[in-house]
Design a binder for these strands. Structure first.
Lengths: 154, 154
DNA sequence: GTGAAAGTTGAAGTCAACTTCATGTCAAGT
DNA sequence: ACTTGACATGAAGTTGACTTCAACTTTCAC
């Protein structure tokens, strides 16, 4: 770490766990920002770490980067965000997670009955019906799982 | 539908909800198969519908096509799969769904405490820690959600 | 037997979220 | 001053799961 309180790219990769390429990618996408040295190197404010923590958590619960950007855009422009700011952003997730859990439970329960009846019917089985349970296309998107991708590929 | 009991591609798209391109893609990948007419068009057996139902359900709970293929490969080669065959394949999912639900609950509970403490700390918050909660990289993959993609794009 | 609808193919495109690469510059300890 | 490791850039590559396209060919109801 520098004597002043700015962080280098390396500092941030080490402390956030994000790859340098991801940080640059996020910067291009407007999710984070950095000042530059005279020589053109990035220098990050400490607050970028919390921002990155938010991004990681958001990605973990399934938000796309677009959604994350939208959320981050609601943070106050002038000042460093407060705990209350972050709490407000986070609050919506609880509902989202609840929805996801509900969807999964419905899926599991549907599955149990499928095993019971041995059906897996196209039209009647909640597990496999495209416009059922997991459907609700358009409004009130329902979320379903994907594997967690390995964070650091070598 | 044809007088004989084979289904055309159109029949299968309509009855399964999968796009024709997806059916061809699945066939290339060895997940489904079809016989051909003299003219080279695909004719599907009725059992492909159940297979597709399985594929959809599997995808819904987050299995990759590779995993689906592996599962389908354990079906008996000679005969049409029975209910018991499908039930066996499906059984493993319940555990998987339970794991997913547990992961989400942990995430939500971690989130609740984050909101409580306002932290979102890089090092201590379960929500944002890369190697925590959602971690367990390598063995015993933990699953987290992704948005359900719209089934029929126009 | 004919016209429209449905089907065929391989190759290339898409999308998200990054990573990798090639090539060149910066920063800083000795 | 020098060297070494960190950092810079734009372009292209990756992965999974499909979709789209262009250019034909088959089927089948009438």
């Amino acid at each position: 770490m520098r004597p002043d309180d700015l962080l280098t790219l390396g500092d941030v990769t080490r402390r956030s766990g994000f790859a340098a390429s991801a940080l640059r990618f996020y910067e291009r996408g407007g999710l984070i920002s950095a000042t530059r040295t005279a020589g053109g190197q990035r220098r990050y404010e400490r607050s970028v770490l919390r921002r990155l923590a938010f991004i990681r958590a958001a990605r973990n619960i399934g938000l796309s980067l677009d959604e994350v950007r939208d959320a981050l855009d609601t943070l106050p422009g002038g000042r460093t965000p407060t705990k209350a700011d972050w709490a407000r952003l986070s609050k919506a997730w609880s509902a989202r997670l609840d929805a996801q859990i509900r969807a999964l439970r419905a899926l599991r329960d549907g599955l149990d009955s499928c095993i019971g009846c041995g059906c897996l019917s196209l039209r009647h089985c909640a597990m496999s019906n495209p416009s059922d349970v997991a459907g609700t296309r358009g409004v009130g998107a329902v979320y379903l799982p994907r594997p967690l991708t390995e964070e650091h590929r070598h």
